[in-house]
Simulated assay, not measured.
Amino acid sequence: MKVAYVFSTAGQTIDYVLGEMILPQLEADCHGVDVAGMFFLHDNAFVLREGDPLGERLVDVADEKEILLMLCDRCAEKRGLAEQVGTDDSGRERYEPRNTFEDVTVGCFPDLYGALGGIGVDHIVTL
């Protein structure tokens, strides 16, 4: 089974749920499902800020397991983690990551769905 996580709850979700539950299981290869992607909203975006210790662990695992790491574009922009670089053919604003780990992407829900669409995700879990 393949899942994707959406981290939307502010507070201790990142440190506790991701940092002390999900990530250690991924590192130990005992999470029980394949994780296809993770999407970060609000202040949860800071975990992918360059130099974040939890983010470093996450990026290593994501690279090894080919997990998509995406920040909400507007959330990232408001936190100095993305900048607008123009618009696409449909007039939607486009953003590029800034001050984040390499291979982190930014986008909105349509971008997330597009990136995960061909992978065959069975469930999207919102935390």
Rank of each mutant, 00 (worst) to 15 (best):
M1V: 12
K2D: 06
K2I: 06
V6G: 06
V6M: 12
V6Y: 07
F7V: 09
S8R: 12
T9Y: 10
G11M: 11
Q12N: 12
T13E: 05
T13Y: 06
I14Y: 00
I14D: 01
D15N: 13
Y16R: 12
V17H: 12
L18N: 03
L18R: 03
E20G: 03
E20P: 04
L26K: 00
E27C: 05
E27W: 03
A28G: 09
C30L: 10
C30G: 12
C30Y: 09
G32V: 11
G32S: 11
G32K: 10
D34K: 13
D34L: 12
V35K: 01
G37T: 10
F39A: 11
F40R: 04
L41V: 10
D43L: 14
E50V: 07
E50A: 14
E50G: 10
R57S: 07
R57Y: 08
V59D: 03
D60A: 15
A62G: 08
D63I: 06
E66I: 01
E66A: 13
I67K: 02
L68Q: 03
L68C: 05
L68D: 06
L69P: 06
M70V: 04
C72G: 00
C72S: 01
E77W: 03
E77R: 08
K78M: 13
L81V: 02
A82T: 06
A82P: 05
E83Y: 10
E83W: 04
Q84L: 05
G86F: 06
D88K: 07
D89E: 15
R92H: 15
R92T: 09
E96N: 08
E96Y: 01
R98V: 15
D103S: 15
V104E: 00
V104Y: 01
V104G: 01
V106H: 02
G107N: 00
C108L: 15
C108K: 12
F109K: 08
F109S: 10
P110T: 07
D111T: 06
A115V: 02
L116K: 01
G118D: 13
I119Q: 07
G120T: 01
G120P: 01
G120H: 03
D122F: 09
V125Y: 09
T126I: 13
T126V: 14
T126G: 03
L127P: 10
